[in-house]
């Protein structure tokens, strides 16, 4: 049974359909990535899973139960728009937020103390959040999300606004949580993070789930249709290539997606005529490339993809 089951969900705001007939399943012990440009409907979907919004139609179940105040307790949620009460002491704040998730005061205290210890943050208990640095308050935010020990963790754009150290810490926590059999869903518009961490993905574009499945299988299904080229010399020859899409280009590097079955050897020949080749490699497409070829270049708000 899927831990999170989203079935034919539709949510409209006025005339715009923010989420249009979306279905996917998140399974136990896996990391699920929700990808897509800003405004694709990721946050709306996440809010519905968290029972902050209700779908217009369709069904969302968490561990077999329809999304409700009871299922909210099973989830630790860190929204993209996140923050804390500035004038409240760290301990009071964490106690409040954890108790709202249904823990008793004494249980909450124990859990919070454990996590504060783990983050070397026990000295901050009596401090107001406004006295903490940004990195410190981000740690408090993690603790607020995970202290009630839920089965499911949902992070909406977790890495945006995090400093590099906390970004790394969060990655470690996510991996550790999975090892402990927890289920994680996170959304991002940064494809490379997904490549590193996710087991399963769902690609969103303009309110629709355009591609869903296991990351490895999806990539394999696209075949080795991409060339990783490293060279030295004038890169102007790249502009002469036809039926290709060059995604990632710098002075001595290019990622070339070959379209319409063009012969890759021809590309190599052309390259050798104009530059010294250091590396020529056939690879599976990057997630970014997969996304572009799935939704089609015309349907893409390109500026929002990195």
């Amino acid at each position: 049974m899927a831990v999170i089951d989203v079935k034919n969900v539709i949510k409209a705001f006025g005339k715009t359909k923010a989420v249009n007939d979306v279905s996917f399943e998140v399974h136990k012990g896996r990391i699920f990535g929700l990808l897509g440009p800003n405004g694709a409907g990721k946050t709306t979907t996440i809010r519905m899973i968290n029972h902050i919004l209700n779908p217009d139609s369709g069904e969302i179940t968490i561990n077999g139960q329809q999304a409700s105040p009871e299922t909210q307790r099973m989830i630790g949620y860190m929204p993209e728009e996140r923050g804390l009460y500035k004038k409240m002491k760290v301990m009071d704040q964490l106690l409040y937020l954890t108790q709202l998730k249904g823990m008793s005061a004494s249980e909450a205290k124990k859990a919070i103390n454990y996590w504060l210890d783990r983050f070397d943050a026990s000295d901050w208990k009596k401090k107001e959040v406004s006295e903490l640095s940004k990195g410190m308050s981000q740690k408090i935010q993690f603790i607020a999300t995970i202290a009630h020990d839920p089965d499911i963790y949902i992070f909406d754009e977790p890495f945006s606004g995090l400093d590099p150290i906390n970004s790394e810490t969060l990655k470690e926590i996510i991996i550790e949580l999975r090892e402990n059999g927890k289920t994680i869903l996170f959304s991002t518009h940064r494809m490379e993070q997904v490549e590193q961490m996710c087991d399963d993905i769902c690609l969103f574009n303009q309110g629709e789930a355009v591609l869903t499945g296991k990351l490895r299988e999806i990539k394999a299904s696209f075949g080795k249709n991409t060339i990783n080229l490293e060279f030295e010399g004038d890169g102007a020859f790249l502009d002469q290539l036809e039926d290709v899409r060059i995604n990632n280009r710098s002075t001595n590097f290019a990622e070339i997606r070959v379209l319409n079955g063009q012969n890759m050897q021809d590309i190599l020949k052309l390259a050798m005529e104009h530059a010294e080749i250091h590396k020529f490699e056939r690879i599976q497409p990057t997630l970014n490339e997969i996304f572009i070829s799935t939704v089609g270049e015309d349907n893409l708000k390109k500026a929002e993809i990195q």
Binding site: N50, I52, I75, P79, R82, G83, Y85, L97, G102, A144
Partner: peptide
């Protein structure tokens, strides 16, 4: 307004109606 500008309200909304 403070809960909105502090951006804590969505955290709360995931626990409380």
């Amino acid at each position: 307004i403070e809960e909105k500008t502090n951006r804590i309200v969505e955290v709360i909304a995931s626990s409380v109606k």
